[in-house]
Design a binder for these strands. Sequence first.
RNA 1: GCCCCGGUAGCUCAGCGGAUAGAGCAGCCGCCUUCUAAGCGGCCGGUCACAGGUUCGAUUCCUGUCCGGGGCACCA
Length: 573
Amino acid sequence: MVREEISRLLQGAAAAAQQSGLLPQVTLPEITVEPPQRPEHGDYATNLALRLARSARMAPSQIARILIQSLPANDVIARAEVAGAGFINIVLRPEWVSAQLEGILAHGQRFVHNDQGQGRRVQVEFVSANPTERCHAGSGRAAALGDSLANLLALSGWQVQREYLVNDAGGRLQALGETILARYLQALGHPAEVPQDGYHGEFLRQLGQELAAELGDQIMELGHDAAVTHLARLAVERIVALHKADMDALGVHFDTWFREQALHDHGEVAATVELLRERGYVSEREGAVWFSSTALGDDKDNVLIRSNGVPGYLAADIAYHRDKFVRRGFERVIDVWGADHQGHVSRMKAGVQAIGVDPDRLTIIIHQLVTLRRGGEVVKLSKRTGNIVALADVIEEVGRDACRFFFLARSPESQMEFDLDLAKEESEENPVFYVQYSHARTASVLEKAEQRGISPQAWGLGAPDVAVLQHPAELALARFLLRYPEVIYDAAAQLEPHRLTFFAQELARIFNAFYRDCRVLPSERSPHDPPLPVSAARLRLVAAAQQVLAHVLGVIGVTAPRHMARVEEEVLA
RNA sequence: GCCCCGGUAGCUCAGCGGAUAGAGCAGCCGCCUUCUAAGCGGCCGGUCACAGGUUCGAUUCCUGUCCGGGGCACCA
């Protein structure tokens, strides 16, 4: 990465300055090198001198001057100067920047890789929607976030597993079975009521009808309890299949669909409660078994096993995480949860700690909820009444690419407002089309060059020399492309895939500016034709831009089309 | 009452210790004989909720207040 290169040079400068006595022997702070906000402040800037001022007891600008003088000889930096209160602004050598393009093209996709993970195993668990409803829009947000995060980690040297937890056990499953049974009976013309704590939505009513039509009255022979269990199992399988279809529609694929029931079946839940007991984190009162999470800093204790003998979700969740860390041996686990689960974070952390796992190995990303608007009004969400907007409908309306991009275009902690009408009406104005269009342009130029047999060989030029690239728009594009590995690195380190959508848009903007200012292919009669060597070098630049655009779209989960045809408006009556 | 996340341009949102706070959309004005105008240039638009504090420096960190969302079950 470019900034590492610069960082090394600065380190060398500081060491040299200390050796010669120009700077006192103080320990260096961590050197941060980043692109400044304003282009006139150079390609990269560092506040090293400012950070050093206090310990060195010298004026920042003086330190900056010394550092610049002490920079070792190199072919990277064209110019470094003191600016503002003591920043060091750095301008890269254009020849060096251009030469890096060949690196991008030669290394292919490997040029974005980094080794943060060092081959360690990480699991990203996301979506894990309860099998009592279709996926709603919030699941789309979790899907886009989790999948792109997994992509980022994979690029950063982690061995990644994508997991979806199927909550096919516990009290809600009972309510699901009761609900389905009631709907099933109703469909067959028998009197039945969905219980108060059941699911009253249209979706399960239809599922009950479907099952009634398929199974006839054979379920009625089972008796109530057996019927509830049987129907619950049937319903779970159908609903999970629908969830899977929704994920497929978004281009999200999981490595494992983990069944909670398996934990119960294999005695892992009971074993986990026993382990907690051995470690002294269990107390019994009011007929229930409690997890003493207050001992680990949580705000209150929580029930592990209810007084009716049934383990609650917390016992299952701790067992589940023990399974991830201990049995399956993940170094790190990342859970993506909606804001409605925010209250569970502290007890999950406490639970992991109680079973002897360093809680820092568990990261829980909370994304805020998605608010839907239709016709300018908030669509009220209620699982009880079943008035939800299904993810499948959103994908249908807006399209997979726009969905993925839109869901990822905000940081997880900000609430998202999804105006369905607007998203539909303005889909052509959606930023995703802008980025895709830029990619299509790169493809178009390269294709045209191929069709016309344009190549350095055809011109008798030999290998293209990117050092001829000198135009500001060319260099701006080249410099920006070189930032991509840095963006990937930071987004992975911070677990913030939404940065990629902003990078993609900015790259598209810079590419379009280049496209406007710098003609790539000779047209045979235009006075603006570039000389052939420039044309050849620009083709290399376009190829590099295409590679980066296609790559970032891939990480986001959006297709990179080679052609985009505008749908002509019908203007004739 | 307690806990979590927000409050930045008309709208949706980035930025989150540094140099004149950004983008998209909306609005206004221009640009198609030239590699796709789903494009490009320009203009308009901000007390970064409010009040204190820490700092050489705060939209960014801390405390408090107000506003919006979510959570505080022997549901998950």
